[in-house]
Design a protein around this nucleic acid. Structure first.
Length: 545
RNA sequence: AGGGGUAUCGCCAAGCUGAUAAGGCAUGGGAUUCUGACUCCCACAUUCGCAGGUUUGAGUCCUGCUACCCCUGCCA
């Protein structure tokens, strides 16, 4: 038997349940409402639910909580699936809450028959006015004691479409004086004429979350229904529905709450993310600056890094704000282990190697790889180097090229300074060097001491990259977004053919704003599709320190 | 005197039935380096929201208190 150790309180609960023989299979579910794209916060939930499935050899269903047709959109369904797969998770069944509408209706009828639910004629405002408040009990509805027959008839008529939207609701008969607002005769069915993505116009009444969710869990045999903290107050209602609909024989399904993930200076609410998309502040839900999973994918974040991050932040009930640096750590860590390296010059100046001839090198894709692979890099008389890698007047501890100095071209020769040219403003435009023979790795003079190593690309076959600007967003008093663009149009030349993306991390300390995106990696795709190079640059840049 | 939660290092977070504060991130210092990256060393809470109490001994038990989060949708 493998020794499994719980790493958080939810796993501890699960393991106790397993040990005590309460169940022999763990079944969880991931229940997104299809009204937006998944973001990093969902990744935490995904990792908890699918993580339990993997760890305890159980099951996890993907279930769309589509009980409110007016808010949902089929567009999101596919994105959700794609993102879950991208993270590497597999669901057992793909289900929709709407699959259970008939059964939910039947359960509601049953509740009415047993005197546990009634049709209420109050308007939304009247319900609100009679609910009481945090310190005063609510008043019972005058329709609370209708006969079963009358309730049955009315509820059926609601279904038949005999009443206008909002004219009547079905309420659970619980306790108007309960200190828990959720238990003050909560509405469990409302009339809503909206075409449902899946059931069309079949229904004009729709169940509320609190009624629907325990039924969905019950039908699917969910053992652990894991959700976020704000549902703690709903648990008594969850249990009420569960028990009164005949579920919960073994105590399952059991609702467990954890603290949702929030991150410093990061917008995580779907409402605001949607606003960013709708206002055209970003190009869409997958804009690389978005904290969505698709945005992170676009940004070059490896899914494994996101998983490792979720694993590391743990699961607790304490509200907390994780620093973005923690996520970035796992991105760097994963990229360092798995990403192929490529040379990039962001702000190029010409580098002439006066005594050079054309050559081709095999350069390691990733020095950390277990099985080393290589890519070709061409070398010639005319190269580009980074402007910062040459200094006429070097700052203290400068480790790169200076007049009269030497430096190693990564993967190639050691070169020595000959001369340089400046434009009318005194900016360096070109540097000329000679390479020192026999200094390539493995050759006679390779052991020569140099101050540093610099990246370079061959001017003949380098490729232009698109460098995306970074930007800052301010959230003003009205909750609207104000975009602060900081234009920066470097050119980027990797020594591989094809597309590439580069985004930069920039500090953000001047305003009260939320940073929604930053650069993580450069990606280039070989023309033949053979190579995929990833360069970790800009992530932890300590140049010039 | 509404109810439900949470409080351990700048940020996460272990700490189960009391025995004298794990780990990661961040940070500072050093070594190493054909990526100023990575890696490797070293430093980093006499203290666990506060105040009392029980105990030989408390972050862990008891009693008060404080702070923050959630709840008055026919949203989820």
């Amino acid at each position: 038997m493998e020794e499994i150790k719980s790493t958080n309180f939810i796993e501890e609960i699960i393991e106790n349940d397993l040990q005590e023989g309460k169940t022999n299979e763990i079944i969880t579910r991931f229940p997104p409402e299809p009204n937006g794209y998944l973001h990093i916060g969902h990744a935490k939930s995904l990792c908890i639910n699918f993580g339990a499935k993997e760890k305890y050899h159980g099951k996890c269903n993907l279930r769309y909580d589509d009980t409110n047709p007016s808010k949902e959109d089929i567009e999101y369904v596919n994105s959700i699936k794609e993102d879950i797969k991208w993270l590497g998770f597999d669901w057992d069944q793909e289900l929709y809450a709407s699959d259970y509408f008939d059964q939910m209706y039947a359960f509601a009828v049953d509740l009415i028959k047993r005197g546990l639910a009634y049709v209420c004629d109050y308007s939304a405002d009247e319900i609100k006015a009679t609910r009481g408040d945090l310190q005063t009990p609510g008043q019972e509805s005058p329709w609370r004691n209708r006969t079963v027959e009358e309730n049955l008839k009315l509820f059926e008529e609601m279904k038949e479409g005999k009443y206008a939207d909002g004219e009547k609701v079905l309420r659970a008969k619980i306790d108007m004086a309960s200190p828990n607002m959720n238990m003050r005769d909560p509405v469990i069915y409302r009339i809503l004429r909206a075409t449902h993505e899946r059931t069309g116009d079949k229904w004009c009444i729709y169940p509320m979350y609190d009624f629907a969710h325990p039924i969905e869990d019950g039908i699917e045999g969910i053992t652990h229904s894991i959700c976020t903290l704000e549902f703690e107050d709903h648990r008594p209602l969850y249990d009420w529905v569960k028990v009164n609909c005949g579920f919960g024989k073994e105590g399952y399904p059991r609702q467990i709450e954890f603290a949702r993930l929030s991150m410093k200076r990061t917008i995580m609410s779907k409402r605001y993310l949607k606003k960013l998309v709708d206002q055209g502040v970003v190009s869409g839900w997958s804009d690389p600056r978005m904290p969505t999973l698709s945005g992170m994918r676009e940004r070059g974040y490896p899914p494994k890094a996101i998983r490792a991050f979720c694993e590391a932040i743990g699961v607790s009930k304490a509200n907390s704000e994780v620093d973005v640096a923690y996520l970035e750590h796992f991105v760097r860590d994963n990229l360092n282990k798995e990403a192929n390296r490529v040379m990039v010059v962001k702000d190029p100046i010409k580098l002439i190697i006066a005594n050079a001839q054309d050559e081709v090198y095999d350069i390691e894709n990733n020095p950390n790889a277990e099985e080393m692979t290589y890519h070709k890099v061409t070398f010639s008389k005319e190269l580009y180097m980074e402007r910062d890698d040459f200094a006429v007047v070097p700052p203290p501890k400068y480790k790169r090229l200076v007049p009269g100095g030497t430096v190693r071209l990564k993967g190639s020769y050691i070169i020595e300074y000959v001369s340089h040219k400046c434009d009318e403003n005194g900016n360096v435009t070109e540097v000329t060097c000679n390479y020192i023979p026999e200094t390539i790795s493995g050759q006679a003079n390779a052991g020569m001491k140099v101050k540093g190593v610099i990246q370079w690309v061959n001017a003949k076959d380098c490729v232009d990259l698109t460098l995306h600007d970074y930007d800052y967003l301010l959230l003003d008093g009205d909750g609207d977004f104000d975009q602060r663009l900081t234009p920066d149009s470097h050119k980027v030349y990797p020594n591989a053919k094809g597309e590439a993306i580069l985004r930069e991390i920039k500090p953000y300390d001047r305003f009260q704003f939320m940073r929604i995106g930053y650069y993580s990696a450069v990606k280039t795709y070989g023309q033949d599709g053979k190579y995929e190079f990833n360069q970790i640059t800009g992530l932890k840049d300590s140049y010039g320190k």
